[in-house]
């Protein structure tokens, strides 16, 4: 492949004619790509003019025709609010913790599941781990409440009986209502809800690894750990990097549904994130300008981080990265 390109470069023809020849050579690939590109242009790019809502005083009644331009006015309004700043900091904290704990979890889980040899058991585990993903956060909240509440909750009951039996003095509190413990509940419930669903991609990628590699490795006498280190992980590398880039890109999405369902007035000072804040101030009226501006801000941060991560990934391994 490389050789062909070099030859063509050396032939001294103009760039355009080379381009034309390359395109002609892969004409069918472009034809194949066309429907997808049309989709993205029509359904994603055509409505993108909506971004100007974030820079204007948009009102649903007067619509796009009568929309005074306010430049960065809405952004300024947003950034100067103390509650927004609080939400921004919480947002970064929560997201960071979620990536730190949540990103490796599906990978570890997939590798463990892949070690199960009994097919029935494997399917059983694979199915059960994705279950929590389908339960809405409001239902999960109901269960957490059943575990944590002080009148009938399972955990306080257990703690109380431990205290009674051993004469210990463990403080019995509602973990959902304490600033000190709420973050732990948030991260644990997140891990529990999302790790299993995350295994789907990794298990598919592991399945795609050529079995001949493992066979050869076993003949060479490589142990499990070595196979893991030299075959499984290198084969998963590009998937891991791609998913990490996407995950970093969505760093500003700290999990609206979860926090909306789980937080309460006692912990809001550490749990309020940009999305919940914007939802709240946008609730009274259809404040599309504000929501758009906040969304743009989040996306821009995401874009910068993605380009950065992608660049680093390319430095480390030129074949990886999304672009």
């Amino acid at each position: 492949m490389v050789k062909q390109r070099d030859l063509r470069n050396a032939s001294g023809r103009g760039y355009l004619s080379k381009l034309a020849r390359d395109i002609r050579m892969d004409f069918l690939l472009y034809v194949m790509l066309l429907p997808g590109i049309i989709y993205f242009v029509v359904f994603k790019y055509a409505p993108m003019y909506g971004i100007i809502i974030g820079f204007s005083d948009y009102n649903i009644v007067s619509g796009f025709s009568d929309m005074p331009w306010v430049g960065f006015g809405i952004f300024e309004d947003l950034f100067t609010k103390a509650a927004f700043q609080r939400a921004f900091i919480n947002n970064i904290k929560i997201s960071f913790l979620k990536i730190l704990w949540g990103f490796p979890m599906p990978i570890i889980l997939s590798i463990l599941i892949n070690e199960v040899k009994n097919l029935f058991y494997k399917k059983f585990v694979q199915t059960t781990v994705i279950l929590p993903h389908f339960i809405s956060w409001f239902v999960i909240y109901g269960m957490l409440y059943a575990l944590c509440n002080l009148s009938t909750g399972a955990i306080p009951e257990i703690l109380k009986s431990i205290n009674a039996a051993f004469g210990t003095d463990i403080e019995v509190v509602n973990y959902l209502a304490q600033k000190e413990t709420f973050m732990t509940v948030l991260i644990l419930s997140y891990l529990w809800q999302s790790s299993g669903y995350g295994t789907i991609v990794y298990l598919a990628a592991i399945t795609g690894i050529d079995q001949q590699l493992y066979e050869a490795a076993m003949i060479d006498g490589a142990g499990k750990m070595r196979q893991l280190w030299h075959i499984t992980l290198p084969s998963l590398r590009s998937t891991i990097i791609t998913l990490l880039i996407f995950r970093v890109g969505s760093i500003m999405n700290a999990g609206f549904d979860q926090i909306f369902a789980l937080s309460n007035s006692l912990v809001i000072s550490i749990a309020d994130i940009i999305d919940t804040y914007v939802y709240r101030i946008g609730m009274e009226e259809a404040k599309f300008s504000l929501a758009t501006a906040a969304g743009l801000f989040k996306s821009l941060i995401g874009l910068v981080l993605v380009l950065g991560t992608n660049w680093i990934a390319k430095k480390v391994d030129p074949d990886s990265g999304i672009m």
């Binding site: 994603k44 055509a46 409505p47 993108m48 909506g50 809502i53 743009l296 874009l303």
Partner: peptide, 20 residues
């Protein structure tokens, strides 16, 4: 790729999409 990726971060929002 970049063009498609861009849509993961930026979108027009509900109303322009509805109008489309």
């Amino acid at each position: 790729s970049m063009m498609i990726f861009f849509t993961m971060l930026f979108g027009g929002g509900t109303i322009p999409t509805y109008l489309l």
